[in-house]
């Protein structure tokens, strides 16, 4: 049953070739670099250095491009399939209006998103965000709301000049005849140092999807139960 589902998944099939290509790139780059450095000569050193773009391709899946490298425009950095995508949702026993109102007050978000240190509403749909990045580095960015339909959807993007390029949307919908609310998050971001950065971030902490899933669980706990449960003094 599960196998059938996987083989029908087009994304899964299309990535397998790219995966092989990446591993081959990485393996060749490693071999070239090992050979180059082991020569302990200038040409050998040059050969090793020349293999770095191949290693980059192995890790990130794309050749390094310096023209839009580090572009902080969400339309450049996140267009098409670029960036890291996270999709998570949860269902709450609260009316949709209440859930939407709570989320729309962006300064509430750090109450249930544990990696956020603070959000300041700057007015005029703009806000300033501070978060804990990998290895406890502080990351800051400004964002603006680009789509807002009351009780339905909230979309945002980071503004140029930010340390992180991110965009996303939260959809709110009524379920069970209006007794419950479904909250669906689609988050997209280009981490500093791109995919390699995301890989490193996953190594040093929890992956973004499980982080968002836990945050949504905290939202549900806060709005349904009025508090986030804990067994010890600190929230982990």
């Amino acid at each position: 049953m599960e196998e059938t589902m996987y083989s029908l998944d087009p994304q899964h099939e299309s990535t397998s070739y790219a995966e092989v290509e990446r591993w081959v790139s990485l393996a060749s780059a490693t071999a070239l670099m090992a050979y180059g450095f082991s020569r302990r000569t200038l040409p050998g050193f040059c050969l090793a250095v020349a293999a770095t773009p191949l290693a980059f391709r192995g890790v990130s899946g794309t050749w390094p491009r310096f023209n839009d490298w580090g572009s902080d425009d969400t339309r450049v950095a996140l267009s098409g399939s670029r960036g890291i995508h996270v999709r998570e949702s949860i269902r709450l026993e609260r009316p949709v209006a209440e859930v939407y109102r709570f989320w729309r007050n962006l300064e509430n978000l750090p109450r249930f998103m544990t990696h956020l240190e603070g959000v300041t509403d700057l007015g005029n749909r703009r806000s300033h965000w501070e978060a804990k990045g990998p290895a406890h580095m502080k990351v800051e960015w400004d964002a603006e709301i680009i789509n807002e339909v009351e009780d339905k959807v909230l979309g945002w993007r980071s503004l140029p000049g930010s340390e992180i390029v991110t965009a996303g949307a939260v959809n709110f919908s009524t379920v069970r005849g209006g007794r419950s609310t479904q909250v669906s998050v689609h988050l997209q971001y280009e981490p500093p140092a791109r995919r390699a950065g995301a890989l490193v971030a996953t190594l040093f902490g929890r992956n973004p999807a499980s982080m968002i899933r836990e945050d949504l669980r905290h939202l549900k706990q806060l709005l349904e139960a009025g508090e986030i449960p804990r067994a010890t003094g600190s929230l982990t």
């Binding site: 499980s210 899933r213 836990e214 669980r217 549900k220 349904e224 139960a225 986030i228 449960p229 804990r230």
Partner: peptide, 9 residues
């Protein structure tokens, strides 16, 4: 209960 286990994951 959906909300009482902080380690539900």
């Amino acid at each position: 209960c959906d909300n009482s286990n902080p380690n539900a994951w």
